[in-house]
Amino acid sequence: MKPARPLPVFVLPGVAALALLLAAVGSLFVGRVNVSPADLIDALFAPDLSLAGLVLTELRLPRAILAILVGAALGLSGAVLQGLLRNPLAEPGLLGVSGGAALGAVISIYFGLAASFPLATPLLGLAGAMAAGALTFAFGRGGTLTLILAGAAVSGLMGAFLALALNFAPSPYAAYEAGLWMLGSLSEKSWDHIGLAAPFILVGLALLSTLGRAVDALALGEIQALSLGVDLDRSRLVAVLGVGLAVGAATSVTGSIGFIGLVAPHLVRPFVGHQPSRTLLPSALLGATLLLIADVGTRLIHTNTELRLGVITSLIGAPVFFWLVMRLRKVAP
């Protein structure tokens, strides 16, 4: 049997973009506030503000845009890291960036800064992510393995501080709120949050998307990539910077959201003949789509306490990962 030719270059990004568009439009019509689709469409074209118009422009639209930005950041970061490190288990949290963001955000909740100034949480989260990324790069420069190990060390350190903060939480309520924040959510996010995170996420995405040639050449191993003229040190720096900005900003606004960055590249890979550069754009689009769908899920599933987004992505992501492992066992002896 002749192996199938991979799909033409534009097919998968096209399909993924279409799915993203559908999910985005669909997500605008689903929510806790029951507004009929007809009212929403009317509100779109009405000159004066109505309840439906407010729901659309102040609640659902920012939520959808944030889901797209954050999902794309996670998907692209996962694809770049898996390609760069040639490790199918690499995920955006690997570099300690999301741990740093979580620590910064929890500190803002811990000291009650978030109560007086709502953007304190994302701002401190961003600072934490940058500090963690800088620390990882400072210790991990010079090699892939050292980068992975430095990332693990920084993640561990951030986790230790996080545990410390929870341990000495001023009140059970603060600990509860911090714990809840870490589970990840897109609810109660405003345009301010987007204004804060979007520039960082977009710059990060732009940086990461320049690494296509490098991750392709790295499919032959580091020595051959080097011999083909790829600047490995520069590629690693761009990757840490890009993941730091994109995932750091994303996590500091939404909290930790697992599995999207890990699973999206795996779902894409068979359709592009496993060529690392061709997983980048579809992984970003698929990550955004998956996060939109998961967020719609949190709105559709009615529970007393809000079902957090990070919980739903993990609940769906983990079984998908099991399935990937089973499939891998069949392919590889």
Partner: peptide, 9 residues
Amino acid sequence: NPRAEWPIS
């Protein structure tokens, strides 16, 4: 002993 790290064609 060069090798490919992904199952690319």
